[in-house]
C-alpha cells in the first residue's frame, strides 16, 4: 500500500486518541470543546488519507464530501456547545 496514505492515517489515529484523552481529562469546558475538535480533526485526517490514491491520480471524492460535511457540522456543534457552556456559567454565577 501507499506509504503516504498509511502515515497520514496513523497521524489521524494519534490525533483522535489525543483528543479523546484531552476531552476526558480536562476540567475546563472550553478545553474539552477544543479537545473534541481535535478528535474530529483526527477523523477527518483518517478519511482524507483513505481517499488518497497516489500522486497524479484523482482522489476518491466521497470521503472528501463527507469531510466537508463534517467540518461544517463540527463548527455548528462547537457553537452550540459554547452557547451551552456560556449558559452554564451564567447559571453557576447566579446560583
Amino acid at each position: 500500500m501507499l506509504t503516504t496514505q498509511i502515515l497520514y492515517a496513523l497521524a489521524g489515529c494519534v490525533l483522535l486518541a489525543l483528543g479523546v484523552r484531552g476531552a476526558l481529562l480536562h476540567a475546563s469546558v472550553l478545553l474539552r470543546i477544543v479537545a473534541i475538535n481535535i478528535m474530529g480533526a483526527g477523523v477527518f485526517l483518517l478519511l482524507i488519507a483513505v481517499a488518497y490514491r497516489g500522486p497524479g491520480l484523482a482522489a476518491d471524492p466521497v470521503p472528501h464530501a463527507l469531510v466537508l460535511t463534517g467540518i461544517v457540522v463540527a463548527v455548528s456543534a462547537t457553537a452550540l456547545a459554547l452557547a451551552l457552556a456560556r449558559r452554564l456559567q451564567v447559571e453557576r454565577d447566579d446560583g
Binding site: Y8, A41, I48, Y52, A58, A59, H64, L68, I71
Partner: peptide, 15 residues
C-alpha cells in the same frame, strides 16, 4: 498535499 483542495478551502475558512 493529499489532493483534497475543496476540503483545504473549507478547513482554512471554517476549521
Amino acid at each position: 498535499r493529499l489532493l483534497a483542495p475543496d476540503v483545504a478551502l473549507a478547513e482554512a475558512a471554517i476549521g
